[in-house]
């Protein structure tokens, strides 16, 4: 019978990503409730040394496929490796990050393992021994509760939602041969072009400052960037701003952009079209700065300032400089 709570630990360039500790902690919580162990699968090149970091967040056992063929993430290579370990050990639950890599890997694994999955979950609970996964749908206009009837019960977890909690366990390393050769891969990474700007990724940011139609142009984002620099925040944009060509598509928050849930979301010059609200209304705190007191964004905001953003935002930056 399927047993154990498993995660796929996500690493890039030989370093674990923060979301790996979040899913390890979520897995620990479920495993404690079920009275089962937490195992992690770690795939990469020269990654065995990362196992103790996972142990710190509640992982009992780390299955490691360490091979030069895994230096770059490929969907076919990594999914073959994880699927092999899962098939050999028959876990009951399998959790991944709903990061770019985790979303890609989890969907391929669902196909390989012929099991069901709940994507991009924001809450998990156990009921009658089964995993119940809560996930936003329609970009957060509704929430669905999903039960998977096949094993493993798979879920991918939205980054930045589940807390990483230290809870040291053994983290025993079990090496396995994934049986993946370079010749067997149908895809390969030819080039990785790092974003030199050092921008913080929207889906992983604790604080997001977004500008909309009210920004009037791309140069005007400087005032948001200044505040963002001070707060360690990412800068986002509404669809109107992206369609106007002021910001790249990768910065778009909303139903046809990124769905985010930071601790603090500051919306500047964003009226609050329903498709934008859908992408950010699960943020813990929302601040709206807008000239129009009737803008729908104020209905979602915890704090609102009705005024010209070009006057207010530099003052917020100045005020924050004083108190931080």
């Amino acid at each position: 019978m399927a047993k154990g709570v498993w995660i796929v630990a996500e690493q890039r360039g030989g370093a674990l990503r923060k979301v790996s500790f979040e899913i390890a902690s979520a897995a620990r919580k479920l495993a404690d409730e079920l009275g089962e162990e937490v195992s992690a699968v770690l795939v990469g090149s020269s990654v065995e040394g990362l196992a103790p970091e996972l142990a710190k967040y509640g992982v009992d056992k780390v299955y490691v496929a360490d091979d030069a063929v895994f230096a770059d993430y490929t969907t076919d290579g990594y999914s073959a490796a994880v699927a092999k370990a899962v098939k050999e050990n028959d876990p009951s639950i399998l959790l991944l990050a709903a990061s770019v890599q985790g979303k890609d890997l989890s969907a391929a694994l669902g196909g390989k393992l012929a099991t069901g999955m709940a994507s991009d979950c924001t809450d998990l609970k156990i009921e009658g021994g089964k995993l119940h996964a809560i996930r936003p749908m329609y970009a957060g206009k509704t929430f669905g509760e999903v039960v998977v009837d096949t094993f493993p019960q798979m879920a991918s977890l939205r980054p930045n939602v589940f807390p990483a909690v230290e809870n040291a366990k053994a983290g025993e390393v079990v090496k396995f041969d994934a049986g993946v050769s370079a010749a067997s891969l149908k895809t390969k990474v030819l080039e990785t072009q790092k974003d030199a700007s050092g921008k913080i990724e929207l889906t992983e940011a604790n604080i997001i400052i977004s500008g909309g139609r009210g920004m009037k142009g791309s140069d005007e984002y400087k005032i948001l960037e200044e505040l963002a620099g001070l707060l360690g925040a990412a800068v986002g944009a509404s669809r109107a701003a992206v369609d106007a060509g002021w910001k790249p598509q990768t910065d778009q928050v909303g139903q046809t952009g990124k769905v985010v849930s930071p601790n603090l979301y500051i919306a500047c010059g964003i009226s609050g079209a329903i498709q934008h609200l859908a992408g950010m209304s699960s943020s813990k705190y929302i601040v709206a700065v807008n000239k129009d007191a009737e803008a729908p964004i104020f209905a979602k905001a915890d704090y609102g300032i009705v005024d010209d953003l070009f006057k207010v935002v530099p003052e917020i930056t100045a005020a924050c400089k004083k108190i931080l």
Binding site: E145, V146, A293, F298, G304, V306
Partner: peptide, 21 residues
């Protein structure tokens, strides 16, 4: 033969009314 089932759908949690400064 469904593998994943949506057992319940709910509206998103209501946000408490905010404060206009």
């Amino acid at each position: 033969q469904p593998k994943a089932k949506i057992v319940k759908m709910t509206p998103p949690p209501e946000r408490a009314p905010g404060k206009i400064i």
